[in-house]
Amino acid sequence: MLFGRFRKPYRALVLAAIAVGLLSTGCGQQYVVLHPVGPVGEKELHLMELAALAMAIVIVIVFTLYFYAVIRFRDTPGNRAPYRPDWHTNKWLEVLWWVLPAALLTVIAIPTVQVTFELAHVPKAKDPVVIDVTSLTWKWLFEYPGQHIATVNYLEIPTNVPVLFELTADSPMNTLWIPQLGGMEYTMPNRVLPLWLQANKTGVYWGDSAQYSGVGFEKMFFKVKAVPMKDFDAWASQVHTTSTPMTLAVYHKLLRHDTMGKALYSRYPRDTFPTIASGFTLTGSGMYMTMNGQKGRIVYMPMSRSN
């Protein structure tokens, strides 16, 4: 009798409305996190889905018990539900609700650890394209050590090849985030942190900084154009031959606290990117480090030898 109110015909209608609402908005292309175009973003999305599913199970169980209790045990006259004011323990129930969340969390935890370790390494099958990223006050400087070109607030990357970003900052901290390719990583002064991403579909995506760094920080949006490898090579050599070079003077101009649009440079001064990471960046063994004088060549370095 108590559940009669849930069986009324409009229940289906409400559910349908919710479903349509979610589908019409939830599947839009603007939900960038839900529409990854590369393996990193896809793995992250799969984990989100797994976690969301496990949490949905918890939510359903808790909500069922909760609504049942709240409706059944209301203090209304004539409520015939049993009243047991001194009932305060039940061994098996209590064991159950230690075990149940633990089991569900184990289901999430195992792939979490696996994927965390997987994403820490660039797949060895292909040589990655390296891009040295420096966040400046309020702009992004991207240097391509392999192609000897540099860009500001614009990225062009080849598809189907991992891209290894080496991140540092000549500014307050920022994070490099290109949601459709995958998760973000901080840029920090005096550190070089690695992040690899990959686009498997050609297209234009957007990226930005997710860490507040001052009044102009919302202008740090940039476009990422993913093109096939040979188009990328053609673009790089075209930039290399036709654009103006970035001199130290230009770099110092970039250091000013202001915002700017896109810019392309045919080459860049060597020492604008740190040659070795300092400090206590916990890169772990087997992580990629760029060595002095070996720009563009990736060397496996255990942590103990990196400093």
């Binding site: 793995k43 918890v58 979490t112």
Partner: peptide
């Protein structure tokens, strides 16, 4: 709490962080 567990999933957090 459920969304907190989603944030605890390290690779998912790479996407959720600061969003």
């Amino acid at each position: 709490g459920a969304s907190g567990v989603m944030l605890a999933v390290v690779p998912a957090d790479y996407q959720f962080h600061n969003s």
